[in-house]
Computed example of a mutant assay.
Amino acid sequence: MRALTEDETKQLFDKLAKYIGPNTKHLVDRKDHEWVFRLHKNRIWYMRKELAKLASCVAKRNLMGIGILIAKVTHNEHMRIQVTALEQIAQYAMFKIWVKPNQEQSFLYGNHITRAGLGRITENTPQYQGVAVFNMADIPIGFGVAAQGTLQCRKCEMNTTVLFHEADVGEYLRDEARMT
């Protein structure tokens, strides 16, 4: 487990800024404890600094994971934000989309959201902006990219895609089913 390099940190914050914008500073500057990002086995973890110090005593091959999994580094050195980062994204997201109950299950199966399933959208959401996805009970269920801006959503047809799916809480179940 090691600290992120400057390039890795920049790349991670650029990815996170797609969803939470300038609120990325809140991930590092927290009042409760000092939090850090660490790289372990091509995964970026977010944890309290005290926990990182304790984990340094564990052998690398014995350490499975620690803290909150934020991103995975691919073999091409790209970062992919994981669904386990949903709590942080939902908490600090600048733009949000709420999904109607009839399309919630479809989204949890990995499908895009159409205009017919759109409950609400944050005002002034730009096109291709990263957004947090909530159900109508304000429970975060995933995140994605807005295929249409707020104004375009009001004018488009009901079968037009308004959100491109990126990750959802149903991934755990789909991955488990694939593994067995």
Rank of each mutant, 00 (worst) to 15 (best):
M1R: 12
M1N: 12
D7K: 13
D7N: 09
E8T: 02
E8D: 01
T9S: 10
T9D: 12
L16Q: 05
A17V: 06
P22C: 02
R30L: 12
R30W: 07
K31F: 12
K31I: 14
E34D: 12
R38C: 12
H40F: 07
R43P: 04
R43H: 15
R43K: 15
W45R: 13
W45Q: 11
W45M: 13
R48S: 13
K49M: 12
K49E: 12
E50W: 09
E50T: 12
L51W: 15
C57E: 15
K60N: 14
L63D: 04
M64T: 15
I66M: 12
G67Y: 06
I68A: 11
I68Y: 07
L69M: 14
L69C: 10
A71G: 01
K72C: 03
V73I: 15
T74N: 02
T74R: 02
R80T: 10
L86C: 04
I89A: 04
I89G: 05
A90S: 08
Q91H: 14
A93Q: 06
K96E: 12
K96T: 07
K96S: 05
I97Y: 04
V99K: 07
V99C: 05
K100S: 05
Q103H: 11
S106K: 14
L108Q: 05
Y109F: 06
G110Y: 11
N111E: 11
T114A: 04
R115K: 12
A116V: 11
L118A: 08
L118K: 03
T122L: 03
P126G: 03
Y128E: 08
Y128L: 08
Y128H: 13
G130V: 07
V133L: 00
F134H: 04
F134D: 02
F134L: 05
N135L: 08
N135E: 04
I141F: 02
G144F: 00
A146P: 05
A147M: 08
A147W: 01
Q148T: 03
T150Q: 05
C153M: 03
M158C: 05
V162I: 11
L163S: 04
F164G: 02
E166M: 08
A167C: 10
A167H: 07
V169W: 00
G170D: 06
Y172K: 12
R174Q: 08
A177E: 06
M179I: 14
M179G: 09
T180D: 11
T180C: 03
